Simulated scan of single mutants.
Amino acid sequence: MFFVYILSCSDKTLYTGITNNLKSRLDFHNTGKASKYTRSRLPVKYVYIEEAGEKGSALSREIQIKKLSRKKKLELIKNSTNFFKEFTSNI
């Protein structure tokens, strides 16, 4: 099972990625090992998580989200379901 996620960085920018291990991926980001982009914007936190099925589906959805404007991404985050809340409370 893969997930598409959006992180909020310390400078208030948003970063979109995919993972099959939410806890591990967040730890990698916050230790500066996951992404050149987030490395200089620590700490980061999940603000959106979406279940995406297989890796190919997750990659396609990641591309779709990355093409959205900041305003549309914020709307997506605002309208997220309890699915996100359930996962973030367990990581």
Rank of each mutant, 00 (worst) to 15 (best):
M1N: 11
M1T: 11
F3Q: 05
F3L: 04
F3R: 01
Y5Q: 06
I6Y: 09
S8R: 14
S8M: 08
S8P: 00
C9P: 01
S10Q: 11
D11N: 15
D11V: 06
D11R: 02
D11Y: 09
L14I: 03
G17S: 11
T19A: 12
L22I: 14
K23F: 13
R25L: 05
R25W: 01
L26E: 03
L26Y: 09
F28V: 00
F28S: 09
H29L: 07
N30Q: 06
N30V: 05
T31F: 00
T31H: 09
G32Q: 10
K33T: 12
A34S: 13
A34R: 03
K36F: 07
Y37P: 01
Y37W: 06
R39K: 15
R39A: 13
R39L: 03
S40V: 05
L42M: 08
L42F: 07
P43D: 08
K45W: 10
K45E: 15
K45G: 12
Y46C: 03
V47T: 11
E50P: 01
E50I: 04
E50Q: 13
E51K: 11
G53P: 05
G53C: 09
G53L: 10
K55E: 15
G56I: 11
S57I: 03
A58N: 04
L59R: 14
S60L: 09
S60I: 05
S60K: 15
R61C: 02
R61F: 02
E62A: 02
E62I: 03
I63A: 13
Q64F: 13
K66A: 01
K66L: 12
K67L: 11
K67E: 14
L68V: 02
L68Q: 15
S69Q: 10
K72R: 09
K73N: 05
E75I: 12
I77H: 05
I77A: 10
I77S: 08
S80I: 07
T81S: 15
N82M: 09
F83G: 00
F84G: 01
F84M: 01
F84E: 03
K85P: 00
K85W: 12
K85H: 12
E86H: 08
F87G: 00
F87Y: 13
S89A: 12
N90S: 13
N90R: 15
I91M: 09
I91K: 03
I91W: 10
